[in-house]
Structures are given as structure tokens and as C-alpha cells.
């Protein structure tokens, strides 16, 4: 099987992204590198990045697993909620 990037894989899923209400927000200036490293490694959707001394994040493509919340709430992750009803990922296989 040809290797796919995470973005390619997310492209297979169906999302109803709520552009205006991110269900996760991050502390951009958080600076404990060990903590940041874990979140970057763990997010199955690869949505966390660390660039120019800042944590960057986009909620588009979130698989709503909760991993980042459990690892890093009140640290890298500022707030985490489920998306509004009907919004977010829609699995068709599950």
C-alpha cells in the first residue's frame, strides 16, 4: 500500500467544521518543551505544531479523541470541549 500522509488520511474522513467556534484552544506561549513534545507526538491528526517558539494549532481535522486534553489540559491545552452538536468529524465506518 502506498504510504499516505496524515493529511491524506484526514482527507478521507467527513468533517462539518465549525469555523467560528474552535472546540479546542491552546496556550500558544506555553514553553515546557517536554510537555509540548508529548502533545505533538500524540495527536493522531497531527494538528499541533511548534514553530518560532510558539505552539500552533488548528481544530480542523480533529478526530475528537481527547488525547490532548488528557495529556495536557491547563498546560498546552487551554480549553477542550466536544464540538457543537452535529459539528466536527462524522465517522461512516467507526
Amino acid at each position: 500500500m502506498a504510504k499516505m500522509s496524515v493529511d491524506d488520511k484526514l482527507g478521507l474522513d467527513l468533517f462539518h467544521t465549525d469555523e467560528h467556534n474552535p472546540h479546542i484552544t491552546v496556550n500558544e506561549d506555553y514553553d515546557d518543551m517536554e510537555e509540548i513534545r508529548k502533545v505533538l507526538l500524540a495527536c493522531p491528526a497531527g494538528l499541533y505544531h511548534y514553530e518560532n517558539g510558539k505552539v500552533t494549532f488548528s481544530h480542523e481535522g480533529c478526530l475528537e479523541c481527547g488525547t490532548c486534553r488528557v495529556l495536557s489540559i491547563d498546560k498546552v491545552v487551554k480549553s477542550w470541549d466536544h464540538p457543537m452538536g452535529g459539528a466536527g468529524v462524522q465517522f461512516r465506518q467507526g
Binding site: M4, K9, L10, P44, L63, T67, F91, R92, Q93
Partner: peptide, 23 residues
């Protein structure tokens, strides 16, 4: 894991149709 020699032959030629994650 998909590339592991014991796994790969079983999924060879397949097409991924969904990617998901859950705790």
C-alpha cells in the same frame, strides 16, 4: 505497524477508506 513484515502481506493492495482515533 502496517509495514511490519507479518502484517503487510495481509493488507497489500487495499485502499484506506477511513482514519479514526478514540480513547
Amino acid at each position: 505497524y502496517k509495514e511490519h513484515p507479518a502484517i503487510k502481506p495481509y493488507i497489500e493492495g487495499g485502499e484506506t477508506i477511513e482514519y479514526s482515533a478514540h480513547l
